Simulated scan of single mutants.
Amino acid sequence: MKTAPTFDQIRAQDGLIHIHGHRGARGIIPENTLESFRFTFDVDVRVIELDVLMTADDIPVLTHNPSLLSDMTRDHHGQWLSHEPLVRELSLAELQSYDVGGLKPGSEYAARFPEQAFIHGMRIPTLEALCELVNQPEYADVFLNLEIKSNPHHPQATPEPAAYTKKVLEIINKYRMQERTMLQSFDWRVVHESARQAPAIPRSYLCYSSKPGRDPHEVNVSDNSPWMDGYSLADYDNSLPRLVAAAGGQIWAPYHKDLTAQAVAEARECGLMVNVWTVNELADIDRMIELGVDGIITDYPGRVQRRFMDHGLRWK
């Protein structure tokens, strides 16, 4: 049987950086599906990044967007959706009547991922189904980078943070995944609920900083941000790593284009792991290698593997 990883084992080591399969392997297989996760494991990537939302009947499910996207969802007749219902307003049975096995031809999403396979009959899985999968002996060394999706601007899309986090943790605890899971969110209220309810599980602070040209509704790090649960960069010399460490985080997860050498140095001084999202292009992979991150979250695990080999690096 393979040995379960520990938190320290998913830090970078000499000559080794961890690859996190983003939503499994979104660039190749439809995202957040059990098939995508199995594919990622089969290509020897042992950390997967996944997204959790909640159904109307309070079941944690693996999907990214609060609404079903018309560019990637078909109904039971095989027709692309003409409307985008909230996941939170659908029961599990209703949700799993939809097919999420491919991208709509001609859509912007399909243009972004032209190599993604089209597979009929794929369903949005539950978090429990994934935990059952990774509890099989061949996956005992797999680690989950689990993002709880929440948006303080749209409270109708998810339960309130305490109840929401509790439901997710019930599944993690049921399958004894506490030592193989890190919990992350852009909504730091959720991260802090995780700290209160499961202090032993490592916590990751996802960050997308305010910059010119960025949609302010997507940015979570800015002055007086409702995403930051009362924290302010100004109180920590405008250093996100120092803020994350002071808040009790173990992991800082910035957007890769926001990362600098100085910020990495500050993170190291604070004892933080640095996992960056979502790194797909060769030049960006090279820059993350140079900066010395712990983990690279990517839609293309194979592409990152090959680049690591070019640099004489190993991965897990």
Rank of each mutant, 00 (worst) to 15 (best):
M1Q: 11
M1H: 05
T3M: 15
I10A: 15
Q13M: 15
D14L: 07
L16P: 13
I17K: 13
H18Q: 10
H18R: 02
I19P: 11
H20W: 10
H22L: 09
G24D: 04
R26G: 05
I28T: 10
E31P: 07
N32R: 11
T33K: 09
L34N: 10
E35P: 01
E35R: 02
F37D: 13
D42H: 02
D44S: 11
R46F: 08
I48H: 13
D51N: 14
V52D: 15
I59S: 08
I59H: 15
I59C: 14
L62N: 14
H64D: 04
H64T: 00
S70H: 12
S70F: 05
R74P: 09
D75Q: 08
H76A: 03
W80T: 06
S82N: 10
P85N: 05
V87N: 14
Q96F: 02
Q96C: 05
Q96M: 01
Y98N: 07
Y98T: 03
D99Y: 11
V100T: 05
P105C: 00
E108S: 15
A110C: 14
A111N: 11
A111W: 06
Q116T: 09
A117S: 06
R123T: 02
I124F: 09
L127C: 09
L127F: 09
E128S: 02
L130G: 04
L130C: 02
L130W: 06
C131Q: 07
C131L: 06
N135Y: 11
Q136D: 03
E138S: 14
Y139S: 13
F143T: 01
L144V: 04
L146M: 11
E147Y: 01
S150L: 01
P152G: 04
H153C: 00
H154L: 14
A157I: 01
P159H: 12
P161E: 11
A162N: 13
I172F: 07
I172S: 13
N173M: 10
Y175H: 15
R176W: 09
M177T: 04
Q178A: 13
M182R: 03
L183Y: 06
S185P: 13
S185E: 13
W188K: 05
V191K: 07
S194G: 15
A198N: 14
R203A: 01
Y208H: 05
Y208P: 07
K211G: 12
P212F: 07
G213M: 01
V219F: 08
N220E: 09
S222G: 09
D223G: 06
S225I: 00
L233I: 00
D237G: 06
N238V: 01
S239W: 09
R242H: 04
G248H: 13
I251C: 13
I251L: 14
W252P: 04
A253N: 12
A253W: 07
P254I: 00
D258V: 00
L259K: 12
L259Y: 08
A263W: 15
A267G: 10
G271I: 05
W277N: 03
L282N: 05
L282R: 10
D286W: 08
D299L: 12
Y300W: 14
R303V: 04
D310I: 04
H311W: 10
G312Y: 08
G312K: 00
L313I: 00
L313G: 08
W315S: 02
K316Y: 01
